[in-house]
Amino acid sequence: MASILAVDDSPSMRQMVSYTLEKAGYGVILANDGKEALDIAHDTEVDLVITDVNMPKMDGITLVKKLRELHAYRFKPILILTTESTAEKKTLGKEAGATGWLVKPFDPDKLVSTLRRVLD
């Protein structure tokens, strides 16, 4: 069972993402912001990270950059879940090392089918 770290400052988003992923058979760890996610990533190696962009303490783009600096996360899929769909923002995410992005509104079925693209 693949484990996923889901990062979002909105409790309802976190609940939705974790519900969706757990229903699809993944193990889910939740974090409230980038900083907490990074702490968790330090201690626990997960198979995939999904993160929001706009968050207090540490935003999603910074989180991606910091994760890529960690040896264990150099090749890990890291997805950005965001309302920002401008090319500019996508480029920022890509430059930081994001594997891909999912544009909100959040579609649970799509999320699950998308994950198969980056997880074994």
Partner: peptide
């Protein structure tokens, strides 16, 4: 390399959520 360092002990919901 990734396989070797993989820690499978991750369990669902064992996050640090404490707020």
């Amino acid at each position: 390399v990734a396989e070797a360092t993989k820690n499978k002990s991750v369990s669902s919901g064992s996050g640090k959520e404490s707020g």
